[in-house]
């Protein structure tokens, strides 16, 4: 499966899709990136006159790449009725991410068994500094 084929299957609307491209795909790990647009809806209120990407959105970006795109890739045979449910997050935030910044997400599979995918996920900024890291898990349900 290619990056484009996986992104085309994502179930998100335009203002809640935080994946631009996937740059590495294998059974053990996935890498992808996203550039936060100046016009993202949450910058207007988070915070007033001081736009910073919310931690929940960084978590969402990490999950969309590290669990959902990865899950679609791992289930490649048949993803027609696939639903991916995030079941746990344990993320630390190290640096802020501002509008127009591009983030790179790297997720390493810890295990994928009995429909549960658990990954160690790290997010980097354009200077290759780590901005967030942690562990995410989800269930891949058909």
């Amino acid at each position: 499966m290619t990056s484009e084929e996986i992104i085309a299957q994502l179930p998100y609307g335009d203002d809640f899709c935080f994946v631009d491209e996937l740059t590495h795909l294998s059974l053990d790990k996935i890498e992808g990136n996203y550039r936060f647009k100046e016009t993202e809806y949450f910058y207007k209120s988070h915070f007033k006159n001081n736009p910073i990407t919310p931690g929940v959105i960084l978590t969402e970006c990490m999950a969309q790449i590290g669990l959902v795109c990865f899950g679609i890739y791992l289930m490649a045979e048949d993803t027609t009725a696939l639903r991916i449910v995030m079941t746990s997050t344990d993320i630390e935030f190290i640096k802020p991410v501002y509008p127009k910044e591009q983030v790179k997400v790297k997720a390493k599979k810890m295990y994928y068994r009995f429909h549960k995918l658990k990954c160690e996920v790290k997010m980097y900024n354009e200077k290759d500094e780590i901005v967030a890291k942690g562990i995410l898990a989800g269930m891949l349900i058909k």
Partner: peptide, 10 residues
């Protein structure tokens, strides 16, 4: 939940 059940089985 079903996700923790997986961990119990592991």
């Amino acid at each position: 939940n079903s996700a923790n059940l997986v961990d119990i089985v592991l």
